[in-house]
Amino acid sequence: MTYDDQNADLWRRPDAGAEPGQTTPPGRVPPAGYAGPPPTDPPPAGWRPPTYVQPPPPRQLAPQDFDKVEAQEKEARTLTYGVALVAAAVMVVLSCLLCSRVLF
C-alpha cells in the first residue's frame, strides 16, 4: 500500500491543534455558515388561466332505507356462515379420508 497518492491528504489525521470534528481538508476554506435558500421571484400577476365555467353545486344523496340495509346485511351474514359450514364439513370429510388411508 502506498501513501503518496494525490488524495492522501484527505485521509490523513488532523493536526494536534485542530478542533475536534473538523473535517475540512487542507487547502480548502470551510463554509462560513448556511446562507439560506436562494431567493425566488414571485410569479407574474396573471399566471393562472382564466376560469369561465363554474361547477354546479353538489347534488343531494338518495335517502337510505336503514331497515332494508339491515335485512341485506343479515342475508349476507347467513350466506357467509352457510358457505363456511359447508367448507368446514368438506375439510372434515377429507381429513377423515386421509387419516383412514394412513391408518389402514
Rank of each mutant, 00 (worst) to 15 (best):
L79W: 09
Y81H: 13
F104K: 09
P20V: 09
P58L: 04
Q22N: 15
L97E: 10
D4T: 05
Q22M: 11
P44Y: 00
L98E: 04
V102L: 12
T80N: 12
G46D: 15
A32S: 15
G33C: 02
D15T: 07
V83M: 10
P39K: 09
R48I: 07
V102F: 08
T23L: 13
D9Q: 04
P14M: 00
K68W: 08
E70M: 04
R59A: 12
Q54M: 12
A35R: 15
V92G: 02
P49A: 06
V90Y: 01
P20F: 02
A88G: 14
E75K: 09
P44R: 07
W47I: 07
P43R: 05
P25D: 03
V86M: 03
P20L: 13
G36K: 01
A18C: 03
Q72A: 13
P49N: 01
A16Y: 01
Q72H: 09
V69N: 03
E75V: 07
D9M: 10
D67H: 05
Q54H: 07
P63S: 11
R77D: 04
Q6F: 08
P43M: 06
P37G: 14
P43D: 01
P58V: 03
Q6C: 05
V90K: 00
A84N: 05
V92M: 06
G46K: 02
